[in-house]
Amino acid sequence: MSETPTLEVRNLQTHFFTREGVLKAVDDVSFTVRAGEIMGLVGESGSGKTVTGFSVLGLVDPPGRIVGGSILFKGEDLAHAGEERLRALRGSRIAMIFQDPMMTLNPVLRVDTQMTEAILAHEQVSERAARARAAAALAMVGIASPEERLLAYPHQFSGGMRQRVAIAIAMLHRPDLIIADEPTTALDVTIQGQILYEVQKLCRETGTALVWVTHDLTVVAGLADTVSVMYAGKIVEQGRVDDVLDRPLHPYTNGLLGSVPSRNRRGQKLRQIPGMTPSLLRLPQGCAFRSRCPRADQACTEMPALAELAPGHLARCVHPHLETAGA
C-alpha cells in the first residue's frame, strides 16, 4: 500500500467561465486509484464525470480551465504539466475511452490510419510493425479477421465493434491508467456485458488502473474495487464498493440504488429520485442535493464536508444513513 498510487486527484476544481457565470463542473474532487485497481465514478448526467476525466488528460476545452487542486499521476502533477508533457502521456500512459462509439472514430479515416497513428505518435517503429500491432490489438478485443478489418472505415462497423476498436486503441501502449467514460451506455445490454468483462480482464492482466465512469451503480457492483459518487461537481460518497453499495451513507447514493434494480433488490419496484439535477449555475445554498433530498432540513443550508463516517467510507451529508451502516 505504500507504493505511489497510479492516480491521485486532490481537491480538483475545473470551472467553465461561461457568459452566464462561472460553472463549477468539478468542484473539490479527490480520489485515488492504485495500479490494477478499478474505481467506479458514478453520478447522474451532468454531475461532472466527463469533465473530471478530461481534466486528468489535460483536455478541458475553453472556456473551461483547471483552477485548483492537483492531479498526481504516479506522483507527477499533471494539473501543472506543460502541453508537450501531457501529449506524451496521453494515449501512451493514460488512455481514455469515450461514451459514444459512433462519434469517437474519425468518419473519413480508415481504422488502420487511426490505429497506426496512435502508435507512431509515441514510438518510432516502422509502418509495418505498427500495422502488425494494430491487428494484434484488434484481435485482442475480439474482432475477427483483424487484418481485413483494418482496411475498413468506421461506418462499416457496428456500435459495439467501434467501441472495441476504441478500446483496442486505448490498450495499444499498455497504459498505466484508462479512463473509460460510460463506454457501454450507448450499446445494447448483451454487448455491454461483453465489453465490461473484456476491459476488466485486460486491466487485471496488465495491472492497468481503471476509472470506470457510469451513471449505473449496478454496473459498478461486479466490476469495481472502489466507488466515488458525484453530485453537482462534488464527491458525495466514496468507499470500497461493498460498503457503498450495501450500506450507502448518502441519501443520493441511497436514491440511486433505489432507482436501479440491484442484485439485492431484484423484483422490487423501481424508484426514481424525485426532481432533476439542478443547474450548476443556480445551485441551492448548502448541500446541492437539498432540493431533492427526503432528509433535508435547516442544517443542510450549510455545505457539509466530506467526512469519513466509517473506516474508509466517506460521505458529504449532515444526516447520513448511519442506521444502515452498521459500523
Binding site: L59, R87, A95, T104, N106, P107, L109, A121, H122
Partner: peptide, 29 residues
Amino acid sequence: HMDYVKFARAKGLPERRVIGVHVLKNIMI
C-alpha cells in the same frame, strides 16, 4: 468540437496532425 477530434488528442497525436489530418480531411468535404 467533435468527439473524434478530442479522441485524436486523447491518443496523444501532435496538434499538427490533429488539425492537418483529422480536422482538414473533414472540412475538405
